[in-house]
Each structure stands twice: as C-alpha cells, then as structure tokens.
C-alpha cells in the first residue's frame, strides 16, 4: 500500500497537505456540536454522552468514507461529486445566515443527546468525506490517512482552527479554492471524459484551476455584502452597584 516510490513523489505529499487542510477546515464543527449537545445532560451522564457521541461519529465517518469511494468509482458519479465539491467550497466561503426561527429543543436525556450528535455528524461529515475522497484520488493510503487525521479533530475540539478562521477570514478563501481545485481533479478523472482528457493533456491543469477560480469568483460575488468582521454580540450585561 505504501511504497518508497510513493513517498518520493511530490504528488503524494501534495495530497497529504490537501487532506490535512480539508480535514482542518471541515471537521471543527463536529467537536463543538458534541460538547454542546452533552451540556444539558446530568453531570453523571455527560462523559458517557461524549464517549458514545464521539465513538458513533467516528464509526459513521469510516463507513461514509468507504461508501463515498465506492460510489465515486461508478460511471458519471464523479461528475456529481465534482459539482457537490464546488458547492461545498462556495458554501464554505459564504457568510453565515442566522436562522433564528430555530425550533430545536435541548435534550436532557442521554439517548437524545447521542441522537443529536450522530445526525449532526452524518450531515457535517458528508462534505469532509467527499473532500478527502476527492483529494485521495483513489490512493488507499491517503484515504485512511485522511480518516485518521480527522478523528482527533472530532474527539478534541479544534477550537484553534475556528479562532484562526474568525481572525483571518481569508483562510476560508484558500479552503474554498482548494475544494474547487479538487473538484476539477475529480472531473478530470471521470471515465466518461477520459478520451477527451487524453487528447488534451493540458486539461489536467486547466480544469482544476478553473474549478478553484469558479469557487472563488462565485463565493466572492455572493459575499460582497458581508462585513469584514461581525459586530460583537451581547450575551450578558450587569451592573454591580455599591453604596458610596
């Protein structure tokens, strides 16, 4: 699986970097959901909730990854995967909408908290799994490496990454461009387009670059109205008065 030849190729190390970047950008939310979902549990059950939640989330991600790889080997599904990756990239760049009409209720039972975590992880893992599967590009070692990297990110909150994104919003433009690039590579690898790509080898570089540019341009255009920094949100305001 892992040969010396592979270690000597620059493509392999670029793949490693891509996967680390995708994992960092698309895994941080899971840890936050796990911590918050277990907050309302009684103290005695909180540890158990986190353990079940993390375990279930990791299991789910392993299954989803191999499922995604299987699907991507089917004809035409790489086309769909590429479109999805472009969309994920644009969504990463877009400013967040606040949906305040949220009607979710906090669950104080262990089963409810674990259910929340598993559902959230299923939804939030799809983008990560697709991104890693795309960047691994059929290399089993890279795929498993991507999975292993994402596990500690799920288990231990990677708040530093979230802080970095908040402090330097341009990081997400880099991430978006990377996802667009990987989408382009996926498209080049689509069997249905193979004949065309063989005829014009330059497409190996052009299509990924177009993918990255597409994500950046769309994301930038859609987020024109975003302010550079969101204003401070108030949580608590108290006055302590003492007689003079």
């Amino acid at each position: 699986m892992l040969s010396l030849e592979m270690l000597a190729s620059s493509d392999f190390w670029i793949g490693v970097l891509k996967i680390i970047m995708i994992d960092l950008l698309l895994s941080g939310d899971n840890a936050v959901v796990i911590a918050l979902a277990c907050r309302n549990l009684p103290e005695s059950q909180r540890k158990k909730g986190i353990l079940f939640g993390v375990g279930g989330a990791i299991g789910l991600r392993v299954v989803l990854t191999f499922f995604a790889v299987g699907l991507l080997s089917l004809p035409y599904l790489k086309l769909l995967g590429a479109v999805l990756l472009v969309w994920i990239g644009i969504k990463l760049i877009l400013p967040e909408e606040d949906h305040d009409e949220s009607n979710i209720k906090a669950d104080t039972r262990l089963l409810g908290a674990v259910k929340t975590i598993i559902i959230a992880d299923f939804v939030m893992s799809l983008d990560n799994v697709l991104g890693v599967a795309g960047a691994a590009n059929g290399n089993m070692f890279l795929l498993i490496f991507g999975l292993l990297i994402s596990i500690p990110l799920i288990a231990w909150s990677s708040q530093l990454v979230l802080k970095l994104i908040d402090r330097f919003p341009w990081i997400i433009y880099g991430g978006g461009a990377l996802l667009g690039y990987v989408a382009g590579e996926m498209l080049v690898g689509e069997a249905a387009l193979a004949a065309w790509v063989v005829e014009h080898p330059l497409l190996h570089h052009v299509i990924p670059a177009v993918g990255a540019a597409l994500v950046l341009a769309t994301g930038w255009w859609l987020s024109l109205r975003q302010r550079a920094h969101a204003p401070l949100e108030d949580v608590l305001d108290e006055v302590v008065k003492r007689p003079e």
Partner: peptide
C-alpha cells in the same frame, strides 16, 4: 457557527 446552530438550540 451556523452549521452548529442547525443542531443545537
């Protein structure tokens, strides 16, 4: 962020 708010009240 908004992803998390989707699942947590």
């Amino acid at each position: 962020n908004s992803n998390v708010k989707f699942f947590i009240d």
